[in-house]
Design a binder for these strands. Structure first.
Lengths: 228, 228
DNA sequence: CAGTGGTCTAGACCACTCC
DNA sequence: GAGTGGTCTAGACCACTGC
């Protein structure tokens, strides 16, 4: 028998993943949610606290409980790890990007979709073309992405705003490399150090929602991680 | 007024950090801990659950609550992120290591100690000298480290077993680099890709307990991270 | 079987936010 | 002042562990 708080947890997660509850929306009080599931306030509270710990909800004493909203700040803070020599956040500037609709390749099975959009972005760091990011998402989860205005900066707030897809987790694989001249369309010299990053990003329900392959020319840059 | 559960939390953390409660030791039951602090079982439970979430305690229904023990497995799982091309854990083999007692350098102020031990390790990956790790700890927290037998593999279980210092967190800074021939005493050719990693590792109380500077020759290797 | 943590309740009071 | 989450209690029953 599954504990009551787990059922509340699963049901709320599901409703948020389906878009039944949207970003920024206020939830009923603990007492009321408890009543809806035939549970006490304490049991509803347990589920709500767990959802808060996962970053799915935000709760504030005196205000209420809200579906967490992804902003440029939170997205950068969680998922953008490039820092300069002093440890300060680096902000690449978009040079150009293209969006293509195509068939998924075999190594994109995790997206579980035959058709995908690929967003290809070239960005400048300190004036130099030093970042190339190829982002792939399932076409059926992001319908009409090719016709939309895609944002110049963080994609995750856009995913949430336009499609209700909240990115909460990512697993990355990093490898250093030595550049060939002009590799990946970047302004890099042969023999320069590069950092190659592959990312799988997951949504509220833990499903893979995005894949990326990035190349960064790393003169003076570092990648910062916290392990727990 | 600080909430009761926070005082229990802080006090237990402190007792573990001081070595008053040692790794593997069983704690009293929830009810009894509550009684010791003049609190109910539910309040003690809240503190204990938080300590479990932080990895400081381990709790098991029917068995009891125990101070978490660092094993080779948990240490590798949390803090050793090198993987081979297939994503499997890489196991470097110790070639040789040396331990030196010396004055702390200015960039080691985080250790808050005038004297430090430096453990310098060279390790083989797939038969090649491909890993150099320089580990620095405060001499007064690890007395006699130079005279002890230091382990061939994971240091963190050793820190905990021998000195009661449990490593729970680490922030790392990664940078790719291009090797010079024989750099850092490794068997690397000029122009090969390297990964440089600096780490600050924190203990139960959040204090910096260890610094490391590592160099890895990365042919076919990757570094895996999970972001949340 | 006794003892542990895990779930759940019903109710109290406090701290904060907003009108 | 009304409504929210945050803390805390006392007690119940269940599920699991180990003797």
């Amino acid at each position: 028998m599954e504990p009551l708080y787990r059922r509340i947890l699963a049901d709320l997660t599901d409703r948020i993943a389906r878009g039944d509850l949207s970003p920024g929306q206020m939830l009923p009080s603990e007492t009321e949610i408890g009543a809806q599931y035939g549970a006490s306030q304490g049991t509803a509270r347990k589920a709500l606290s767990l959802l808060e710990a996962r970053g799915i909800l935000e709760r504030r004493q005196g205000r209420g409980t809200f579906v967490a909203v992804s902003t440029d700040e939170t997205a950068l803070f969680h998922f953008f790890r490039l820092r300069d020599a002093a440890g300060a956040l680096v902000t690449p500037v978009l040079e150009r990007q293209s969006v293509t609709l195509r068939d998924a390749t075999p190594d994109e099975v995790a997206l579980d979709s035959p058709r995908v959009y690929e967003i290809d972005r070239l960005r400048r760091i300190d004036g130099r073309l030093a970042a190339r990011e190829r982002v792939v998402v399932a076409a059926d989860r992001f319908p009409g992405l090719g016709e939309r205005q895609t944002p110049a900066n963080a994609l995750y707030p856009f995913y949430q705003r336009a499609y209700g897809v909240a990115i909460l987790t990512a697993s990355e694989t990093l490898a250093p490399a030595v550049a060939e001249a002009g590799q990946d369309g970047l302004e890099v010299a042969a023999g320069e150090a590069l950092l190659l990053i592959r990312r799988q990003a997951g949504d509220v329900a833990g499903k893979v929602a995005e894949l990326r392959r990035c190349t960064y020319a790393m003169a003076e840059l570092t990648y910062a991680v916290d392990l727990r």
